[in-house]
Amino acid sequence: MERYANRNGNSGVAAYQMGATSILVQFTTCAVYEYTYASAGAGNIESMKSLAISGSGLCSFIKRHVNKRYSRKIR
């Protein structure tokens, strides 16, 4: 997984890993969730990828737009 830049300094996201149609997100609680095109929608996944790369706004986006629309909890 790639470390999330956390440019604002207060994110609940610690790391992420992108796939072609998915993104894994590790939160600061150590929980890891997989979000996919099928579970959260292609547009949301692509937005999440962009936010992950920018290092800002990913946790807020998840809370506002996809919340529990993950495909699985990995840990």
Results as ranks from 00 to 15, higher is better:
1 M>V: 09
1 M>Q: 09
1 M>Y: 08
2 E>R: 10
2 E>S: 09
4 Y>G: 08
5 A>R: 13
5 A>N: 07
6 N>I: 04
6 N>L: 03
7 R>P: 00
7 R>Q: 08
7 R>M: 04
9 G>H: 01
9 G>L: 06
10 N>Q: 04
10 N>A: 05
11 S>Y: 00
12 G>L: 03
12 G>W: 03
13 V>E: 11
14 A>D: 12
14 A>L: 11
14 A>V: 01
14 A>P: 01
15 A>F: 00
15 A>I: 03
16 Y>F: 15
17 Q>G: 08
17 Q>C: 03
18 M>Q: 15
19 G>P: 09
19 G>V: 04
19 G>Y: 09
19 G>R: 08
20 A>E: 15
20 A>D: 15
21 T>G: 04
21 T>Y: 08
21 T>M: 06
21 T>R: 14
21 T>H: 13
22 S>D: 13
22 S>R: 05
22 S>K: 00
23 I>D: 05
24 L>R: 12
24 L>K: 14
24 L>P: 02
24 L>E: 15
25 V>C: 02
25 V>G: 00
26 Q>D: 04
27 F>M: 09
28 T>V: 15
28 T>K: 15
29 T>I: 01
29 T>K: 02
29 T>P: 01
30 C>P: 00
31 A>L: 09
31 A>R: 09
32 V>A: 04
32 V>K: 01
32 V>F: 00
33 Y>L: 11
33 Y>P: 02
35 Y>E: 07
35 Y>R: 07
36 T>H: 00
36 T>G: 05
36 T>C: 03
37 Y>P: 07
39 S>Y: 06
40 A>D: 10
40 A>V: 04
40 A>Y: 06
41 G>M: 05
41 G>P: 09
42 A>N: 07
42 A>H: 05
42 A>G: 06
43 G>A: 13
43 G>E: 14
44 N>R: 08
44 N>E: 11
45 I>Y: 06
45 I>G: 05
45 I>A: 03
45 I>V: 14
47 S>H: 03
47 S>M: 11
47 S>C: 05
49 K>R: 08
50 S>P: 00
50 S>A: 10
51 L>E: 12
51 L>C: 09
53 I>M: 07
53 I>R: 15
53 I>V: 14
54 S>R: 13
54 S>Y: 07
55 G>Q: 06
56 S>F: 10
56 S>H: 10
56 S>Q: 12
57 G>K: 00
57 G>Y: 12
57 G>N: 06
57 G>R: 06
58 L>A: 13
58 L>H: 13
59 C>E: 14
59 C>M: 08
60 S>T: 14
61 F>W: 12
61 F>D: 05
61 F>G: 11
62 I>T: 13
63 K>L: 09
63 K>H: 13
63 K>M: 10
63 K>Q: 15
64 R>F: 08
64 R>D: 14
64 R>P: 06
65 H>D: 07
65 H>P: 02
66 V>L: 03
67 N>C: 10
67 N>H: 13
68 K>C: 04
68 K>T: 14
68 K>Q: 11
68 K>L: 06
69 R>Y: 08
69 R>M: 09
69 R>F: 04
69 R>P: 02
71 S>H: 10
72 R>I: 06
72 R>E: 14
72 R>T: 11
73 K>R: 14
73 K>M: 10
74 I>G: 00
74 I>P: 02
